[in-house]
């Protein structure tokens, strides 16, 4: 079986900081993969590298066998990689429905001439887009928010809209960056259920970066542990990861130091979470 995602010796450097160092791993198609690690360990950077926001310094990234290492980033999205952000990134001038429709751009586009002159083909296209976006809002359970604007939502609602925007185009791979951050326990349960359904019902391969360890442990079949830009565990079951003394050490070390593991990039990591 082909892997959905393959990283081969991926490294990236920001000035002097080696944010990722020789990261190699595989995510099989259909898997729900968790990625955990202390603050500043490079989890977000890993997602940015996969969605081609950052170019890698060295190494290769494959998506269902295609080498996407040098692709422009919109091409990666069009090839079926969608994502959410640690800091929610909705367009506030658009309604929830329109934000979700924005997510359809990856797979469904119309010619500008068709749009400009409002051809019948384009009308049908736009109607279908609205229907699909509404269907996704129902799937996520927020159809009642359709006409609200991005800035009229609570933090938890924003995260759901962002997930809806990411799955409306039925991506092949979904990258989630801390979808449970700042949510109450009830909401965390809801989001866990949603992620499970996206994986099982829509058949989307999910890469879940999350700090709420309970969520990762209960949801994910396999977990990778990233510490200081290196994969400590490439792929372990929840119980293996929980019992691994090196993982405990990495997290405990962080607790003792009250900061990111190895004291790296404390400032930025804190900013990113603010």
């Amino acid at each position: 079986m082909t892997a959905a995602l393959t990283l081969e010796g991926v490294s990236i450097q920001f000035g002097g900081i080696r944010a990722l160092e020789d990261v190699s791993c595989q995510v099989p198609a259909g898997q729900l993969r968790g990625i955990i690690g202390p603050n500043g360990s490079g989890k977000t950077t890993l997602l940015n590298v996969i969605s081609r926001i950052y170019p890698v310094t060295s190494g290769a990234i494959r998506l269902f066998g295609d080498d996407i290492t040098r692709w422009p980033n919109h091409a990666v999205a069009r090839h079926g990689v969608m994502r959410t952000y640690q800091r929610v990134a909705l367009v506030n001038q658009l309604t929830v429905l329109e934000n979700v429709m924005l997510g359809l751009h990856a797979t469904r586009r119309q010619s500008l001439l068709g749009i400009a002159f409002c051809t019948p083909g384009y009308r049908r296209f736009e109607r279908e887009s609205v229907d699909r976006a509404r269907g996704t809002l129902e799937f996520v359970g927020i159809e009642h928010l359709a006409d609200r604007r991005g800035d009229e939502l609570s933090g938890g609602q924003m995260r759901l809209v962002e997930i809806a925007r990411a799955v409306v185009s039925r991506p092949r791979v979904l990258l989630l960056d801390e979808p449970a951050a700042g949510l109450s326990l009830v909401r965390i349960d809801e989001i866990a259920d949603l992620i499970r359904r996206i994986n099982a019902e829509l058949g989307v391969t999910v890469v879940l970066v999350e700090h709420v360890l309970n969520l990762v442990m209960s949801l994910c079949e396999r977990i990778s542990v990233l510490v200081s830009g290196q994969l400590l565990v490439e792929s372990g079951s929840p119980s293996e990861v929980q019992e691994d003394p090196r993982v405990r050490e990495a997290y405990l070390g962080q607790a003792r130091a009250h900061g990111p593991g190895q004291g790296q990039g404390e400032g930025e990591a804190a900013d990113a979470r603010a």
Binding site: I53, P72, Y85, N92, L94, L102, H105, R109, I115
Partner: peptide, 27 residues
């Protein structure tokens, strides 16, 4: 017609979230 379409929505995305636009498949 243009601003009420996927093109118009991409423009607003450029205005507010330029870094997010390509990750949504916007060229």
């Amino acid at each position: 017609n243009l601003v009420a379409s996927g093109f118009g929505r991409s423009l607003l995305c450029l205005a507010e979230q330029e870094l997010v636009a390509p990750a949504l498949g916007i060229n």
